[in-house]
Simulated scan of single mutants.
Amino acid sequence: MKYKSVFDIIGPIMIGPSSSHTAGAARIGKVARSLFRKQPKWVEIYFYGSFAETYKGHGTDVAIIGGILDFDTHDERIINSIEIAGDLGVDVSFSVEDDDTDHPNTVKVRMGDGDDELELVGISIGGGKIEIIELNGFKLKLSGNHPAILVEHHDKFGAIASVSNVLARYEINIGHMEVSRKEMGKKALMTIEVDQNIDDIILDKLEILPNIICVTKIVD
């Protein structure tokens, strides 16, 4: 395996004993918060595999709640994140699941605020690196290492091309793109990782395109 830098070997700056169980969990929580775009009123966390066995001892529980509160991996408030969430009126619950998963460090996050809900499945693959593998029932592969745009749309001819054309017009380079759909002709999800952060004006241009339902960005 090749590493880009020494930080890929020793892992990120973080609070907690494990880059996989602490920093990775915090990053999954932070991506969930970014996608939800606001502070939730309730959060349900479901741990699988190794996460389920060691989440208390390795601080996975406080790490993922810290991420949902938008704390960075090195933020000292992570240690008290569950208490802080309670003070902010966020109802938090944890469940241990025994279902088999493809990766031992797997977590499902559900959150909502009465009006909106989000469900996300993420894995921590080591060294603080993560992948989001499911969002609201859509299968995807999102690293969280790059700025990204998630475009929910109707599965209609021309939808993907129209989004690509807007990004090309603004000279946005696509590093990785994939499309997931639950059923042909119904709703679909574009996951687009790009090389630079996206201005809101570009999101506005995307949202008014035909067949586009909503557009969310994840900032690097």
Rank of each mutant, 00 (worst) to 15 (best):
H146L: 12
M1H: 12
E171I: 03
D102K: 12
D115F: 14
W42C: 09
I198A: 04
G16H: 02
K108F: 02
L150G: 06
N173V: 08
I84N: 09
M177I: 15
L88R: 13
D98E: 09
G137S: 03
G16Y: 07
D200K: 04
M1N: 12
F94L: 13
L118R: 05
I10W: 07
Y48N: 10
F7D: 11
P210M: 00
I28M: 11
I79L: 15
I45R: 02
E207G: 05
R33Y: 04
I9P: 13
I78D: 06
D116W: 06
E207R: 11
N145M: 14
L167F: 03
S124C: 10
I201G: 07
P17L: 11
K139L: 01
I160F: 03
M190T: 07
K217E: 03
S34E: 14
V6A: 13
S19A: 15
S95M: 12
A26R: 07
F36G: 11
M111L: 15
I208R: 06
G29L: 05
Y170T: 01
V96Q: 13
P40V: 03
E207F: 00
G11Q: 06
V109M: 02
E119C: 10
S162E: 09
D100V: 11
D87I: 01
H74Y: 15
H103V: 12
E131K: 15
G128N: 02
S18T: 12
L189F: 01
W42P: 10
V43P: 08
A63H: 02
T60F: 04
K139N: 12
P12S: 13
D116S: 15
I149Q: 07
K41T: 10
T106K: 09
V96H: 08
I174Q: 10
M184V: 13
Y55V: 11
K4F: 04
S20F: 02
H58A: 12
S19T: 15
G122H: 08
L209W: 01
L209E: 02
D75T: 06
I149Y: 00
I125F: 08
M190L: 14
I149R: 01
I68A: 03
R27S: 08
V166G: 02
G29P: 05
D200W: 01
K182L: 14
I68F: 02
D72S: 15
V194E: 07
S162L: 03
G86V: 05
L120S: 06
D99Q: 12
G122E: 10
L189G: 00
I160W: 00
I45H: 07
K187A: 01
P17K: 14
G29M: 05
I218D: 04
V109T: 11
E76K: 11
E183R: 12
I123Q: 08
G67S: 04
E53L: 11
K139W: 00
E193G: 05
S20E: 14
K56S: 06
G86H: 11
D98W: 06
K217T: 08
I208S: 06
V166L: 00
S180N: 08
D116R: 15
H58L: 15
I9T: 11
P17V: 10
A63G: 08
K182E: 12
S5K: 03
A26K: 04
Y55S: 05
I133R: 09
K205T: 00
I201C: 03
K2P: 03
D155W: 00
